[in-house]
Amino acid sequence: METVTQGATDAQTGSAPTRHAALDALMRAAQAGDERAYRALLEEVALRMRRLVCARAPWLGRADVEDIVQDILLALHSARATWDPARPFMPWIAGIARNRLADHARRYVRRQAFDEAAQDLAEVFSTTPGQTHAEGVVNLMSVRRAMDGLTSGERDAFELVRLRQMSLAEAATKRGSTVGAMKVAVHRATLKLRAAVGRDGKE
């Protein structure tokens, strides 16, 4: 009991090696059937993954983020026998997370395949150099950086219309704005993003 509590604390607040060793210990206990250790591990993984997804895909809504986090937890659960206790836990969970994130990213692109937005996204991601497609899709850092260059109105409009697939009228109602203003904001945001990411790609 004591060790589990200590392990859970170490997993959150210890130094990097302690943290990793604590996760290894929790996972080892979880494989042995220790429910408390397993719960602590799942909570810790959920926390980290939520932080990671929010950082990489700031345009995702809360529900979408939780969807991805839950998917990673489920994958961890069903694959838990594939972890070799002689090896570190971090690369193992990273492998699972990368896989689930890539699948989700694919889904997002696909969902928008029939929309202009897909073209924008594909363009944005294909200009990220030196990565496989899936990793490029997952790694939204350059998009995020580019998003920082937008005004808040432009960012809002782009997120609602292009990423969440609302119609201009819906987005306008939601923001208390007009269709025309939304249209202009989305257009400006698209131009700015394209310019910013294009610059990134050439670096």
Binding site: A30, Q31, A32, G33, E35, Y38, R39, L42, E43, A46, R50, E66, V69, Q70, L73, L74, H77, R80, A81, T82, W83, D84, P85
Partner: peptide, 18 residues
């Protein structure tokens, strides 16, 4: 997510590593 964690933790009996 908390409910899922609860469910998984209860389902997580001992497993033999491959």
């Amino acid at each position: 997510t908390e409910d899922l964690i609860d469910r998984l933790a209860r389902d997580g009996g001992p497993v033999r590593p491959l």
